[in-house]
Simulated assay, not measured.
Amino acid sequence: MMRLNLVLLLGVMLSAMYLVQVQYDSRRLYAEIERAQGEARRLEIEHERLQVEKRAQATPLRVERLAKDQLQMRPATPAITQYVTTDRRPQP
């Protein structure tokens, strides 16, 4: 009888320690999930901000202003248009 009680006591102690370990792991994993979800939210907000900034950078007015200021481009007009024609005569 005494031996059975010791075996049962050992079983209860081992299961209690296992339960504590499982709870610890569960809490640790839950904290990691929360941290990952927070990072995902932060990255999503950053992505949306970058999308808005990209749309703002690609406005036609801004592109035209950069073309004029940095590339010294100007709108095409008939006065500055040069037409290239080909000679239709056969080559000897």
Score class of each variant (00 low, 15 high):
Ala31Lys: 11
Thr85Pro: 00
Arg35Phe: 01
Leu4Phe: 11
Met73Pro: 01
Ala36His: 06
Tyr83Ser: 09
Val22His: 04
Glu34Thr: 13
Gln70Tyr: 13
Glu53Gln: 15
Thr85Tyr: 12
Ile33His: 01
Thr77Ser: 05
Lys68Thr: 04
Met73Lys: 05
Thr85Ile: 12
Glu46Leu: 07
Asp69Ala: 13
Ser15Met: 08
Tyr83Gln: 11
Gln57Ile: 05
Glu39Arg: 04
Thr81Lys: 06
Gly11Trp: 02
Ala36Trp: 04
Thr59Glu: 04
Glu32Lys: 07
Glu44Thr: 14
Leu66Val: 02
Glu53Ala: 15
Val84Phe: 06
Thr85Asn: 13
Ile45Arg: 15
Leu8Asn: 08
Pro90Phe: 04
Arg74Ala: 11
Leu10Ser: 06
Arg89Tyr: 01
Ala67Asp: 02
Asn5Gln: 14
Ser15Ala: 09
Leu6Lys: 05
Glu34Tyr: 04
Leu6Tyr: 03
Thr81Gln: 08
Ser15Asp: 01
Arg41Phe: 10
Leu10Thr: 01
Thr86Gln: 13
Ala16Pro: 03
Ala16Tyr: 03
Gln23Ile: 09
Lys54Leu: 14
Pro75Asn: 00
Arg89Ile: 00
Arg28Tyr: 02
Gln82Ser: 13
Gln37Cys: 01
Met13Ser: 13
Leu6Asn: 05
Tyr30Asp: 11
Val22Ser: 02
Ile33Gly: 00
Leu8Gln: 10
Pro75Thr: 02
Val52Lys: 15
Glu46Thr: 00
Thr77Gly: 03
Thr77Gln: 07
Ser26Asp: 01
Pro78Tyr: 03
Val84Trp: 04
Arg42Gln: 15
Met73His: 07
Val63Met: 10
Thr59Asp: 01
Arg74Asp: 08
Arg49Glu: 10
Arg55Gln: 12
Gln51Trp: 04
Leu43His: 05
Val52Asn: 13
Tyr30His: 15
Pro90Asp: 05
Gly38Asp: 00
Arg55Cys: 03
Leu66Phe: 06
Gln72Thr: 11
Thr59Ala: 08
Glu46Val: 02
Leu61Tyr: 10
Ser15Cys: 08
Ser26Gly: 14
Gln57Gly: 02
Pro78Glu: 05
Glu64Tyr: 10
Leu4Tyr: 09
Lys68Tyr: 00
Pro92Gly: 08
Gln82Val: 15
Glu39Val: 04
Arg35Thr: 10
Ala36Gly: 03
Ser15Tyr: 00
Leu29Glu: 04
Thr59Gln: 11
Ala31Val: 02
Lys68Ala: 07
Thr59Met: 07
Tyr83Thr: 14
Tyr18Phe: 14
Arg28Asn: 05
Ala31Gln: 12
Leu71Glu: 05
Arg89Cys: 04
Ala56Gln: 13
Glu32Leu: 07
Glu44Phe: 14
Gln82Phe: 15
Leu19Arg: 08
Arg49Ala: 09
Arg27Ser: 05
Pro78Leu: 00
Ala58Cys: 09
Val63Asn: 11
Met2Trp: 11
